[in-house]
Amino acid sequence: MKTKGIAVYGGSSNSVNRVYLEAAYQIGQEIAKRGWRLVNGSGDTGMMGAATRGAQSGGGETIGIAPYFFNTPGILYNKGEDTIFTRTMRERKAFMESLSSAFITTPGGIGTLEEFYEILTLKQLEQLDAPLILLNLGGYYDSLLKAMEDMKEAGFIHESVFSLFTVTDSVEETFKVLEEAFASKS
């Protein structure tokens, strides 16, 4: 049976509320505890670094995908079991998608949003059928969800788009959703 890869998207900054980094670390631990594989952007800092450290603390497998131009001191997590290099950011995202059975979007910035929306768009176009979770820790994504509601009201987003992803408020709820989604596909 193929190991489930769980892509975790998130910001690369360490200059954020510790609650976010602690949640990312816990996500890594939860992935490892279930025998799943963490797939992320191979960053040493922020949500990526925290998730990788969490997974490895539980003996979990990690795969980091990074473009060659990230291979500079202080950028990549150098203790990962496996780092795969790509030429571009687009290749990076495609490779992460190909290795993943589910996607968790944690708090982050524009790159994180871009990753979330790409997977959401692929699901809308029926090019991907995998759980997509938006982890709304402490209401972090409330304004994003409000903007999407405004887009729906203006006629640019159909109501059905909201059924393509699940909003969770905690790491525990995130893994409950994942386990239920995987059980329903068995």
Rank of each mutant, 00 (worst) to 15 (best):
S100Q: 02
T88D: 06
T86S: 06
E91G: 08
T72P: 07
S100L: 01
I75F: 13
G80H: 04
G80Q: 01
N78I: 09
T86M: 00
R92I: 04
F85Y: 15
S101L: 00
S101Y: 05
L99W: 08
I84H: 01
G80N: 07
R92S: 03
T72H: 12
T88W: 10
R90K: 12
T86L: 05
G80P: 00
T86I: 05
K93R: 12
P73E: 05
K79I: 14
K93W: 10
S98E: 03
T83N: 08
S101V: 04
N71G: 05
I84D: 04
G74V: 09
E97M: 02
K93T: 08
M96R: 06
T86F: 03
T86N: 10
F70H: 06
L76R: 10
I84Y: 07
R90I: 13
L99T: 00
F70L: 14
K93Y: 08
R90C: 05
K93F: 07
S98W: 04
S101E: 04
T72E: 15
F95W: 07
P73Q: 10
K79Y: 06
D82L: 03
T86W: 00
M96P: 11
A94K: 12
R87N: 12
S100A: 12
N78E: 15
S98T: 02
E97C: 08
T86P: 05
G80T: 10
R90D: 12
L76A: 15
N78F: 03
K79V: 08
T86C: 00
L99R: 13
I75H: 11
F85H: 13
E91V: 07
D82T: 08
K93S: 03
R90S: 09
M96I: 13
L76C: 08
R87L: 15
E91P: 04
M89C: 05
E91H: 11
N78S: 04
P73V: 06
T88V: 12
P73W: 12
P73F: 09
E81P: 07
L76E: 04
S100F: 00
F95M: 14
S101H: 09
R92Q: 03
N78T: 15
N78P: 04
T88R: 09
P73L: 07
E91N: 15
D82M: 10
R87W: 15
P73D: 01
G74E: 04
L76S: 05
D82Q: 14
N71T: 11
N71V: 13
T72I: 13
P73M: 11
K93C: 01
A94E: 13
M89Q: 01
G74Y: 02
I84A: 07
